[in-house]
């Protein structure tokens, strides 16, 4: 198992200024696996992704990415380990065009998708490529936020609430894209509010409460743990 482990977060504590947000997160993600962090608002799921990227305040504990310790690295060094981050607010730059947004992140690994491939996967982006970033629709912005980290050759994708606030047809499209990415061997961490979106995609799910992982549920256990999920997540 050890050799296929791609991300290991252990006893991770993180702070925003004075406030202590993560209280010892522990979880691992295997190479090519898709896991989901589920939990209520404020449980610490978004902070977990931000802490992995080095975007919170002080952090302690350990974050091993592909065998490298990242807890003391600056954000750009972490990205260069081959990590692609799609933030909750999508982070499309208004001062850049769609295409400039797409081309912005530098290569962090080999084997990223080509622009042609991405335009094939997200045909809307090709049409809108000269539009100003924030003049695009929410769905288009989400596609762009996904597409731009696929071009860089990142093999570990941290995706924060990508289905949030989007029309069902677009959510469906995103689910198909995640399936494709899984087939291509990407390692994916999905932070999701939308259980129905995450459940069929995730190989394993981690339930987060008060800045800690309180339960782990594998795909095949979903049925039997229905009651527990009902109770903790309200689904």
């Amino acid at each position: 198992m050890q050799s296929t482990e791609y991300l290991r977060v252990s006893s991770l504590h993180a702070f925003y200024g004075e406030s202590h947000v993560l209280h010892g997160m522990d979880f691992t993600v295997r190479r090519g696996e898709c896991v989901s962090l589920l939990g209520r608002n404020g449980a610490g799921r978004t902070t977990t992704l931000r802490a992995i990227m080095g975007l919170t305040g002080k952090r302690t504990g350990s974050i091993m990415i592909n065998g490298r310790e990242a807890v003391n690295l600056a954000p750009h060094k972490i990205a260069q380990l081959g990590v692609g981050y799609c933030p909750e607010e999508r982070g499309i730059y208004s001062s850049l065009t769609c295409e400039e947004n797409l081309m912005l992140p530098p290569k962090v690994g080999s084997g990223g998708m080509s622009v042609e491939e991405l335009y094939e996967m997200f045909p809307n982006l090709k049409e809108r490529r000269h539009s100003q970033g924030t003049k695009m629709s929410g769905g288009e912005q989400q596609m762009l936020a996904m597409a731009r980290i696929l071009r860089t050759g990142a093999r570990l994708l941290l995706l924060d609430e990508i289905s949030e606030g989007l029309a069902p047809v677009i959510v469906q499209k995103l689910a198909e894209i995640i399936q494709t990415l899984k087939q291509r061997g990407y390692t994916i961490v999905l932070v999701e509010q939308n259980f129905r979106f995450a459940a069929p995609l995730a190989d394993r799910m981690f339930i987060v409460e008060h800045g800690q992982v309180v339960a782990e549920i594998a795909q095949h256990e979903l049925q039997e743990k229905q009651a527990f999920l009902q109770e903790t997540l309200g689904v």
Partner: peptide, 18 residues
């Protein structure tokens, strides 16, 4: 483009490896 991105959102830009 890096410069404009970093002006607008320095943290995220750094998280892209810049």
């Amino acid at each position: 483009a890096y410069l404009r991105a970093a002006t607008e959102n320095p943290k995220l830009t750094q998280a892209f490896g810049i």
